[in-house]
Amino acid sequence: MSLNYMIPASKFKRYLPKDYVELVDYGPFGKKYSEVGVKNMGTYKELVEEHPMCSGCWMSYYIKIIFASLPNPEDTVTIGTAGCGRLAISQAAVPFIYGNYGDQNAMASGITRAFRLRFPDRQKDVITIAGDGGMMDIGFSMTMHAWFRREKFTTIMLDNEVYGNTGGQESGMSVEGAVLKMSPKGKNFGKMPAMQLAITAGCVYVVKMSPTNINKASKAIRRAIFAARNLGPTFIHVYTSCNIEYSIPTPDVFRDAKEKEKRSFCI
C-alpha cells in the first residue's frame, strides 16, 4: 500500500523534523476529501507552503488549489517544466518530475504507461502542470500528440499570457497587440484557441476558467483527474495573471482575474 512510504519508522518518529511529523499527522495523505480539500484549507497542513514565487502571484494561489484538490495525493505524481509554476510545484509534498522545456506531456505519456504496467490494479494519478509557453509553444507537438494518442492523465495550463520566468516575453497565449518583450510593435496574431485544440485532439473533459471561485476551480480539477483515470486525456486552461510582467498591483490581482472572466474581451 503506497501510504507506507509516508509513515515514519516507529523508532524514528521523535527524530524527524517538525514539518515532516506535521505532514504525517495533519497532512491530507489518506484522508477523505470532506476532511481536507479546498473548503478546509487552513485546518490541515497543506502540501505546498513556502515557495519562492513573487508575492501576489495568481499562479501560486492556483497551485495551492491544485494540491488542495488532489483526490489522493499519496498516489499522485506531478510533472512540470521550465517556467514559474515549477518554483511552487517543486516545493509540494508530492513527487515532481522536471525534464526538459516543454516535454511534460511526453514524459507523462511514458510514466502513465509504466504505472499501468507495474500497478495494473491501482490508480496512480499523473498531472502535468506547465505554463502557456511550455504547453502551447515549445511543447505544442508533445501536448497535442499525447492527446491524439489518448494518454490518460490531466494537463493543467497555467496561462499567464507571457513568458514570465524569463522576464516577460510575448507568448503564443498573449493577446493580439500586446506590447511585451520580443513583441516591441505589439503581438501580431491572436491568442491560440487552446480549448478548441484540446477538444479537437480528443480530450474527454476540457475547462477554460479564471479561478475566482475556489470551489468551482477545485471541482474542475477533481473532475479532470477522475475523468483522466480511465476515460482519456483531460485539459484545464486556467487564467493565472502574471502581476509582475503586466504590472498589476497585488491588491488588484483578484479584481483583474474577475475582470478577465466577466468583462474585458480581447481587442
Binding site: 507506507n4 512510504y5 509516508m6 509513515i7 515514519p8 519508522a9 516507529s10 524514528f12 527524530y15 524527524l16
Partner: peptide
C-alpha cells in the same frame, strides 16, 4: 539516517 530507514 536517510529516507530508506526513516520511513516504514
Amino acid at each position: 539516517p536517510g529516507p530508506q530507514v526513516l520511513w516504514d
